[in-house]
């Protein structure tokens, strides 16, 4: 078929196409040696930066976790200056102690407010405790829990870091990378 001749030069030759090939053959590429400068170096393979980036990301994550841990730790610590300056807020515990000290004035005020139809203000928990020597049990537990979480995060990042390092070192990974690049 003539169409086959145009496609892959098989089948019945098309005289028009043959004529065109003959005429246009004068413009065909004439082999010439490639002139590469002698000082031109063979290009290097592109380096895979993934392991480096993974390590950098892991270190960054570890630093971030450490920062969070430090912040939590400093927040949970008592601040004696502020505690001494601010007046002791009325907490439930303190009120109970006050009541036990036979100080009847606040109690009377509360009763009067209830009689008028209003409710006494809710007790407010202050951020900083006046007692600077010991933390309340609940806060201490929270701080310990936060610390454990940060330690777990650090352990995870360390494991990930070692995994990336192992992957980077293994010969099978090198071959894989070569295939990817090549």
């Amino acid at each position: 078929m003539k169409e086959d001749y145009l496609w892959d030069k098989t089948g019945e030759p098309d005289p028009e196409i043959q004529q065109l090939e003959e005429i246009l053959g004068a413009l065909r590429y004439e082999p010439k040696p490639l002139e590469l400068p002698q000082d031109l170096l063979v290009p290097r393979r592109r380096r895979n930066h993934f392991p480096l980036l993974a390590i950098a990301a892991t270190v960054l994550l570890a630093l971030l976790a450490a920062g969070v841990w430090l912040r939590v730790r400093t927040q949970s610590e008592p601040q004696p200056k502020q505690a001494s300056v601010t007046p002791a807020p009325s907490t439930i515990d303190e009120k109970s102690t006050v009541a036990t000290n036979n100080d009847e004035e606040p109690k009377q005020q509360k009763i009067e407010q209830v009689r008028k139809g209003g409710l006494p203000p809710l007790p407010r928990h202050s951020k900083h405790r006046s007692s600077s020597t010991t933390l309340p049990k609940q806060e201490r537990e929270e701080a310990l829990e936060a610390k454990q979480q940060v330690m777990l995060a650090l352990r995870l990042t360390t494991e990930k870091l070692s995994l990336v390092h192992k992957k980077n070192q293994s010969p099978s990974n090198q071959i894989k990378n070569q295939h990817r690049v090549g």
């Binding site: 145009l6 892959d8 090939e21 246009l24 053959g25």
Partner: peptide
């Protein structure tokens, strides 16, 4: 067309 008629390559 140039690759076929000038350079003499086949379609494949």
């Amino acid at each position: 067309l140039i690759l076929r008629l000038v350079e003499g390559m086949t379609g494949p």
